Simulated scan of single mutants.
Amino acid sequence: MALKVGKGAHAPPFLVMDVITAANARAAALPPGAPGILRMEVGQPATGAPAGAVEAAMRALGARLPMGYTEAFGLPSLRARIARHYAEHYGATVDPRRIAVTVGASGAFPLAFLAAFDRGDRVAMAAPYYPPYANILTALGMEPVLLPAGPETRFQPSIAMLEKLDPLPDGLIVASPCNPAGTMLTPEELRAIADWCQARGVRLISDEIYHGLSWGTVAESTAATMGNSAVVVNSFSKYWSMTGWRVGWLVLPEDLVRPVECLAQNMFISTPHISQLVAEAAMDCREELEGNKARYAESRAALLAGLPQAGFDSIAAADGAFYLWCDVSRLSNDSVDFAARMLEHAGIAATSGVDFDSGRGGRFVRFSYCGAVEDMRQAPARLKEWLGR
């Protein structure tokens, strides 16, 4: 008799991880001296953790600190430093007791979903969206409700979309800046959505992991506008350039503090101690981090100038994060095949839009521009040569 495999084991893949594997294989097969692969498939800054954070890790290791388990919600000093971040950057007073340090934002989402929702609950999000939102919800027995969004709403949800839902959802996920489109809600739009959720008993989950990376539009945190009921997710992976250290955090409403703490105790025990020390030090490395941001700005400018000349002339408003969401329907309606051929013939790894929108993603490709500036400058010329422009 065949053994049962749980339904959660059948969550869809996160296809960008397959692109990473294919790009690694392609790079390993290149002959000596051949042009390298331009890595534009994943949101992983090429810069690494800031120098001050690395030095903090070396000091801790050199002192042979025990670095055992911390409290489930993390080191008190790190939680206090995160609370100070909200005061300094958003003018928001956040009690450190409401902050939970997590194993990256990826560890934060299951904690938030399990505490805020039940099996069968419906959670809305704009499409295109970050795939693990829907995949984690599905694995937990919850139902993602997709709101197809386009350039008319800057690929963001709107109150008009929400008002059409019947029944209303139990939750709503927003991301500003968002992945993959890189677009943002204005502060006024975010407040209006927050007020709509508050009035209707819809739990708002605000993904703010790209805060600090915006280009002209101010990012506002729901910790400042809707702290009583919203859940805020953030991470040290993007602005702080610490993907592999796996440190994120939640800002929780009072009613979810203890439920999330109990879940964290059982599921993760605690975020790695050394990573928490590094994260706390990283928060004081503002000058280096702003230098990283300046390099992303260079790459963004080079791509926005060069990609249209290569045939990629329909690009979402790149308000924040470090992604360009390109409509490639003039070139292909099969972005999976298009991205595979791009890797093979142009040596550029990018991500098919199908990962972010299974219905319409065949027309889109996402380019990440957080790699080396020189690589980003090379990309348009390679694409022009490949496409014969």
Rank of each mutant, 00 (worst) to 15 (best):
R119L: 08
R98M: 07
F117N: 09
M125K: 07
Y129F: 15
V101K: 03
F113K: 07
R81Q: 10
R79P: 02
S106P: 05
H85R: 09
A105H: 11
A105Y: 11
D118R: 15
A87S: 12
L78T: 03
A127C: 13
D118E: 15
F113V: 13
P96L: 00
F117Y: 13
D121P: 03
T93Q: 13
A83C: 01
P128Q: 05
T93M: 10
A112S: 12
R84H: 15
D121G: 03
S77T: 12
V103I: 05
G120W: 10
A112Q: 07
V103S: 04
L114D: 14
R98P: 04
I99D: 00
E71T: 06
P96H: 01
A115S: 12
Y86H: 11
A87C: 09
V101P: 04
R84M: 11
A116V: 06
A127G: 02
R122G: 11
S106C: 11
F73E: 08
T102S: 06
M125C: 12
L78D: 03
Y129L: 15
D95H: 01
R98T: 09
R79Q: 01
D118L: 09
L78E: 01
G120S: 06
S106R: 14
F109Y: 15
Y90D: 09
G104V: 03
G104P: 10
P96T: 00
P128Y: 08
L114W: 01
Y129C: 10
I82A: 00
T93A: 14
A83Q: 01
F109E: 11
G91C: 09
I82E: 00
A100H: 13
P76K: 00
P96C: 00
Y90S: 07
I99C: 05
A100S: 10
D121F: 04
R97A: 14
F113A: 15
P128D: 07
V123I: 15
T93R: 14
T93I: 10
F73I: 06
T102F: 08
R79G: 02
H85G: 03
D95V: 03
P110C: 05
L114A: 14
A108H: 13
L111T: 09
R79K: 05
F109S: 06
A108P: 14
L78C: 05
L114S: 14
A108N: 13
A127W: 05
V103D: 04
A83W: 05
